[in-house]
């Protein structure tokens, strides 16, 4: 569902942050993306969620060459991808409920049709008490879970998570990992960017390791 061929990326006139990346992400797969801080994990994710264009090489997403996409086609592709941002990017003026419901609103769905679904998911991630709270009053772990709930509410085919356990204690990290595995079992491909070795030791999965701009894959 994702194919990279000799992809290179540089910011402006700087050095190549990513070099000659060639790999695939298969449907229903689960993998970690790892590497030291500054290795380019977030940059690789940004290529995947169409926030950046590669400086060279070819990226195919769900069978589409991402360079040739119209804005509307880009939006349509993004609807098949759930993103958990490292800094959450929750909207501070919206309640947890409205934040999580956002992808469904964007699809043009009526509030009555998704209300129960959103509340159920919020209970499932343990935010049942915080449904009407605004993000500024949530703890780091609660924000993390709200961000994850928003990423999965529309049942994406591909889930991208950037350091999703960066702000939480090990117990919660394990719970979140279980959540991702659950999601993977129901058919979503999952790519978790992390430099948390302990987290990766909890589950034996494919590892994509970035080192000095190059990618090494450990099946």
């Amino acid at each position: 569902m994702v194919r990279f061929e000799n992809v290179g990326l540089r910011y402006g006139l700087g050095p190549e942050v990513l070099r000659d990346l060639t790999f695939r992400l298969e449907p229903h797969s689960f993998q970690f993306l790892t590497g030291p801080s500054g290795a380019g994990k977030s940059s690789l994710l940004r290529l995947l969620y169409l926030s950046l264009k590669p400086t060279r090489g070819l990226i195919t997403l769900f069978g589409h060459d991402i360079v040739t996409l119209s804005p509307d086609a880009m939006a349509t592709l993004r609807r098949r991808i759930g993103i958990v941002f490292q800094d959450f990017r929750l909207l501070d003026h919206l309640s947890t409920y409205d934040n999580v419901a956002l992808p469904l609103r964007v699809l043009g769905r009526d509030e009555a049709s998704y209300r129960a679904e959103v509340i159920e998911l919020l209970h499932w991630v343990g935010l049942g008490e915080k449904i009407w709270s605004l993000p500024p009053v949530l703890s780091g772990g609660e924000k993390q879970r709200a961000a994850i709930a928003r990423a999965v509410i529309a049942r994406p085919q591909l889930l991208l998570a950037d350091e999703p356990t960066g702000n939480v204690d090990p117990t919660l990290a394990r719970r979140l990992l279980r959540l991702f595995l659950e999601l993977n079992k129901s058919g979503t491909s999952v790519l978790i960017a992390t430099h948390d070795i302990a987290l990766m030791d909890l589950y034996d999965a494919r590892r994509l390791v970035l080192h000095e701009g190059r990618l090494h894959v450990y099946e």
Binding site: Y49, P71, D72, A75, L77, R78, R79, R89, L102, V106
Partner: peptide, 16 residues
């Protein structure tokens, strides 16, 4: 702008 970006990332079209 942050709101517009998030809307983009959750798949909002320009018209929305």
């Amino acid at each position: 702008r942050p709101i517009v970006e998030v809307l983009h990332f959750v798949g909002a079209k320009h018209a929305f």
